[in-house]
């Protein structure tokens, strides 16, 4: 087993990669005293966790197309061992993001933007969060058994909708189009297109079924 493969198979390594971005805000908020962050530190935390949630969501969705496109790659296979872990981590960051939002903007603002004068960008964010919540809850083995493989899989396809809603949410949170969104979700879109092309052109019908 090669070193990169060993690394990517390691639960400890993946856990470390998933936890570190959560600790990152400690540096500018408490240690370096960066005044651009200190002006509104919670806003920084809020944006950071939202950003990490989007990155993880795009990352975990890229695992399957990577496996399909590179069926012989041990690395792609190693990554696919961690789909649940990375997916649940994405939900955890979305939860941190929402919690930071509730402290930053307050319940009154949320109710106003959802109920009194609905804002599509807030609704999109909440929609993505709700999907991730359902997927996180149903990610435990008992639910997989209870729902049955096929139904479970169909339910978890909602992750694509969550990604689309998250991208929309991220774009419309800003005054100008944030280029960031392109490099977070762009590669995923490219991979998915390649995957569909590959599946359509796969001569072997057996291979098609495995997808």
């Amino acid at each position: 087993m090669s070193f990169p493969e060993k690394l990517l198979r390691s639960k400890v390594f993946i856990w470390t990669l998933l936890v570190l971005p959560g600790l990152w805000p400690v540096w500018p908020v408490f240690v370096s005293g960066n005044p651009s962050v200190g002006a509104d530190p919670l806003k920084y935390v809020l944006h950071h966790y939202g950003f990490v949630a989007c990155v993880l969501l795009a990352t975990v969705l890229a695992f399957t197309p990577l496996r399909v496109l590179f069926p012989k790659s041990k690395l792609a296979l190693a990554l696919n061992r961690h789909r649940r872990l990375v997916g649940v981590a994405g939900f955890a960051y979305a939860l941190l993001h929402l919690t930071a939002y509730l402290f930053h903007d307050g319940w009154a603002t949320l109710v106003h933007d959802v109920w009194a004068k609905p804002k599509t960008f807030i609704l999109a964010g909440l929609g993505a969060f709700t999907i991730l919540l359902v997927l996180a809850i149903t990610s435990v083995n008992a639910f997989v058994r209870w729902l049955g493989g096929k139904r479970w899989k169909n339910l978890h396809r909602l992750a694509y909708l969550a990604a689309a809603l998250a991208a929309y949410h991220q774009i419309y949170a800003r005054k100008l189009f944030p280029v960031q969104v392109l490099w977070i979700f762009g590669p995923l879109v490219v991979l998915e297109i390649l995957r569909v092309v590959r599946q359509r052109t796969a001569a072997n019908p057996e291979a098609r079924e495995k997808m």
Partner: peptide, 13 residues
């Protein structure tokens, strides 16, 4: 409101 967010309250820098 701004079409995308509320203007009812503000964050104090």
């Amino acid at each position: 409101d701004h079409p995308r967010w509320s203007q009812a309250s503000e964050r104090v820098i």
